[in-house]
Write a protein that binds this DNA or RNA. Structure first.
Length: 278
DNA sequence: CAAGAATCCTGTCAGC
DNA sequence: TGCTGACAGGATTCTT
């Protein structure tokens, strides 16, 4: 999941957890991507949930008592919200929290690339996983000037540069492809050539793509569902991602357009139109 | 230093 | 039906 999915999950969790108390936390394994923090079950049990927010692809759950729980969904992580029912425990559920109203939140992650950690709320932004993140793409700090400055001197191409969370926080493979298409910028263009009008177009395209995806509840692929069990529907609005050899919607019937192409950049699939993206 | 490859893990799907 | 290989929403660590 990327920023729009994480935002959707966070909102679903907020509606169910905020103001409630965790009556029991249970852990089913010692580690995910990283070792789980010592005493996690004990530190969660009895804690009151004050507020939830998102930073990049991380969900922050602030607890009374001074701890913030950090949650990253990795590649296959998802959250299961359900009323207590032992018949419906999902496979690969590594952490379960039972709330004082009887609902349970489970963290499910087959590939275990996700992570869970605890950090002192007072210095949560200094946590090593958050400290190096670039600006929030929907926030005021993400401007054409800032983006151009962050890309200056980068010899890599723009597509892998946008996947680097230090440049801008929250984009992943789907939304980078979609935003570059919307900005009509080639994914193989050198990152340092993005400035001026191109930077303006790119910032706008990223903002619009993410905002529309959030409004659609994110994109549902194989295993992403919202905490309420419903899927997002932004996958129906994809212009290029997953659409190899299909026609490009912006050049209908143009012979020079060979449709959506798929190439590999830094080991990841890139989808784009070679005609309108320069 | 920077950039690309390898890596962690399980599940799914296409092709034979 | 199996079986095999490619591939998957991520991000760090290891090699060039």
């Amino acid at each position: 999941p990327e920023l729009p999915e994480v935002e959707t999950v966070m909102r679903g969790l907020r509606a169910r957890l905020e103001g409630r108390t965790i009556v029991k936390a249970a852990l089913n394994r010692p580690n995910l991507r990283w070792p789980l923090p010592p005493g996690l079950e004990r530190r969660l049990t009895g804690a009151h949930v004050c507020s939830l927010s998102r930073r990049g692809k991380y969900i922050l759950i602030r607890l009374a008592g001074g701890d913030t729980m950090l949650l990253h969904l990795g590649m296959s992580g998802r959250v299961s919200l359900r009323s207590a029912n032992p018949d419906t425990v999902p496979l690969h559920e590594h952490l379960v929290m039972e709330m004082d109203d009887g609902w349970r939140m489970g963290f499910v992650d087959p590939r275990r690339f996700g992570s869970v950690d605890l950090v002192a709320t007072a210095s949560e932004q200094a946590h090593w996983l958050l400290a190096g993140l670039g600006p929030e793409p929907l926030g005021p700090e993400f401007t054409p000037g800032q983006l151009a400055a962050a890309l200056a001197g980068k010899r890599t191409s723009i597509k892998p540069a946008l996947l680097d969370q230090r440049i801008v926080a929250g984009l992943g493979n789907i939304y980078v492809c979609e935003a570059l298409y919307r900005a009509r910028l080639s994914p193989v263009r050198s990152a340092h050539t993005i400035a001026g009008n191109r930077a303006t177009r790119l910032v706008l395209a990223i903002r619009e793509t993410l905002a529309e995806a959030i409004a659609a509840g994110g994109s549902s692929l194989r295993d992403y569902v919202r905490p309420d069990g419903e899927g997002g529907y932004f996958q129906y609005a994809w212009s290029v991602y997953g659409r190899e050899s299909k026609p490009c919607a912006l050049c209908p019937g143009v012979p020079a357009c060979h449709g959506v192409r798929r190439i590999i950049q830094a080991g990841r699939s890139t989808f784009y139109c070679g005609r309108i993206q320069r």
